[in-house]
């Protein structure tokens, strides 16, 4: 719980700093824009070290099996099932739109652009832009909730929960928190699940946009 409160407060502090202009990244030029990317690389390196130096490394690698693929499949199916239910609550978009947005799997840049493009012909420019924005926000939220909620998800629903919640971001942005809270042994699961979810995004989004 302490971890969650700390993460939320740090994120909100960042929001406030950015909104008020106290933390103006423009001062640093391009390096300021890319600071999160550099941090992500640093994180990946550190996560790599913690895995490489793990005394149980052999046991972890030995546990990898084709069964691992079931995790991304259930992740996608679960997301789609509940996104379908959510279309009943959301007034702005129908069943196919909800499914298209849900199958962004946290990959907000790609899914929002795809939906904005693919829906333009069938739904008109304005509605397409709206759906694209909803897709962007939905999938940003998904990533943020996973970053912030990983400790709680892990405690309540087991070590697979943060990986499922992360969707396509399980092997990049969310990987460090997954390894931190679900344990080093979950690294292969997170990478396989993230990569498979990531690859499913363009296919599923285009499929659901065709209705």
């Amino acid at each position: 719980m302490k971890g969650t409160v700390l993460t939320v407060s740090v994120f909100l502090l960042g929001c406030a700093a950015g909104w008020s202009g106290l933390a103006d990244m423009e001062i640093f030029g391009e390096a300021g824009d890319d600071v999160t990317i550099y941090l992500l690389y640093l994180l990946m390196f550190l996560v790599g070290i913690s895995v490489g130096a793990n005394p149980n490394l052999k046991k972890i690698l030995g546990s990898v099996s084709p069964k691992i693929l079931l995790l991304p499949v259930t992740t996608v199916l679960g997301t789609l099932a509940f996104s379908a239910l959510a279309s009943l609550l959301v007034s702005g978009c129908g069943l196919a739109d909800s499914l298209a947005i849900g199958s962004g799997m946290g990959y907000y840049s790609l899914s929002s652009v795809l939906i904005g493009q693919l829906k333009e012909a069938s739904a008109g420019a304005q509605l397409a832009a709206e759906l694209g924005t909803i897709a962007l926000l939905t999938n940003i939220f998904r990533e943020m909730f996973t970053l912030v909620g990983a400790p709680l998800l892990c405690r309540w629903f087991g070590p697979f929960a943060p990986i499922a919640s992360a969707g396509a971001t399980a092997f990049d942005v969310c990987l460090p928190v997954i390894v931190r809270y679900s344990g080093d042994a979950m690294l292969p699961y997170a990478i396989v699940s993230g990569v498979v979810c990531d690859m499913s995004v363009p296919f599923l989004v285009s499929f659901f946009c065709s209705f």
């Binding site: 993460t7 740090v10 502090l13 960042g14 950015g18 933390a23 941090l39």
Partner: peptide, 9 residues
């Protein structure tokens, strides 16, 4: 997270 917040804000 802090810098993601800065970007969002």
């Amino acid at each position: 997270l802090f810098f993601l917040g800065v970007e969002t804000g």
